[in-house]
């Protein structure tokens, strides 16, 4: 994909100092916003959010929130939740996933506990729990997770499926599959088969079709504005378009592997329309069998997908897609499209 050009920005971490009393704090936050996020980035989100832009800016300037998933393949939910309290970790349940919690208190000690080593908990961002919930696989299903590593969503899918049925978990990177294997083992997942293939070519190589497919595509991760701000690179348009080509290839390949009547979730942790609506629109233009559906789980706040961006006009049904902004649920940002293959 060639070299990556990024816009210069000051380090987020440099600006993280001890709390400053109001009204200095407000001024400090404003400086942090202006210096952390490049101008082109700010303009882009201003256009997307309009009146809500100040809320968005406030939200991404706050320190990241922390989340955990109780792994019910290893421990029942009640014991898992009680144990978190015993460890001094305050929990607040996520409305969209019963085993998901926002955590505070002694949450930073969790990875050092025996319970964590035993695989009772999986640290996973709250927004990242949404795509598997919306895919909603059943224990009898055969599921494909096309871009599976490092395994957060695969292990969550296995948890939703109660370790039954089958998940074919694919990732192109062998290196990333090493950590994937560790996570599968620690979480006690037994219904997963791993493949190491380029997802764009999988439809020509696999003699199978699937009930459910998750395409959590590689992206610029622009939704991770809070949790990964210090490491985030702000990509230029050329980089975004390069990733878009990969995303289109992955979605097209995945859709071919879907059974008639089957459901596919396309998700990214990016909020750029070029990586989301443009990609889904490309599928709709090239496959008459593809139809977007509005997800049934409405236990979280979201915005509809957009139907226009720059010169591009998208399909009307794009409003059924979900844009989850950081200020919606106090999570990272996500884009989610639920696509059915009509028979």
């Amino acid at each position: 994909m060639g070299s990556v050009k990024t816009e210069p920005h000051l380090s987020y971490s440099l600006l993280m100092t001890t709390p400053i009393p109001f009204p200095l704090e407000e001024a400090y936050m404003e400086i942090k916003r202006q210096t952390t996020f490049p101008k082109s980035f700010q303009e882009r989100f201003h256009r997307l959010l309009d009146d809500e832009y100040p809320q968005f800016l406030n939200s991404i300037s706050k320190p990241p929130t922390h989340f955990v998933r109780v792994n019910t393949l290893k421990i029942d939910l009640k014991t898992g939740t009680e144990r978190l309290k015993h460890l001094g970790i305050d929990t607040s349940p996520l409305p969209w996933f019963t085993s998901g919690f926002q955590i505070s208190g002694a949450h930073d000690q969790l990875p050092f506990t025996r319970e964590y080593s035993l695989g009772w908990y999986y640290i996973q961002e709250g927004g990242s729990m949404l795509p598997p919930v919306i895919l909603n696989p059943q224990p009898s299903h055969i599921v494909l997770d096309l871009c599976a590593a490092p395994g957060s969503k695969t292990t969550q899918l296995a948890q939703i499926m109660e370790n039954k049925g089958a998940i074919v978990a694919n990732d192109r990177s062998f290196r990333r599959l090493t950590s994937f294997g560790h996570n599968i083992q620690v979480c006690g997942v037994i219904n997963t088969i791993t493949l190491c293939q380029d997802g764009r070519h999988l439809s020509t190589r696999l003699p199978l079709s699937f009930d459910r497919i998750l395409v959590d595509a590689p992206c610029t991760a622009s939704g991770h504005l809070r949790s990964k701000a210090p490491q985030l690179e702000f990509p230029d348009q050329q980089r975004i378009l390069g990733i878009q080509t990969v995303q289109k290839g992955l979605l097209t390949s995945a859709f071919r592997l879907l059974k008639p009547g089957g459901i596919l979730v396309y998700s990214t942790c990016s909020l750029h329309p070029e990586e989301n609506e443009t990609v889904v629109n490309h599928l709709l233009n090239n496959s008459s069998e593809a139809g977007i559906e509005r997800p049934q789980n409405t236990q979280f706040t979201s915005h509809p997908g957009i139907t226009q961006w720059n010169d591009a006009q998208y399909h009307e049904d794009m409003t059924k897609c979900l844009r989850v902004y950081p200020h919606d649920n106090d999570t990272d940002g996500f884009f989610i499209a639920l696509i059915r293959k009509n028979s």
Partner: peptide
């Protein structure tokens, strides 16, 4: 390694696999 029977049945239909099931 331990594997669900649905995943086991799928194995014979896959031409190539990596890590499968749980040790």
């Amino acid at each position: 390694r331990l594997i669900s029977d649905s995943a086991f049945d799928l194995l014979s239909r896959l031409p190539y696999t990596g890590t499968t099931g749980l040790y």
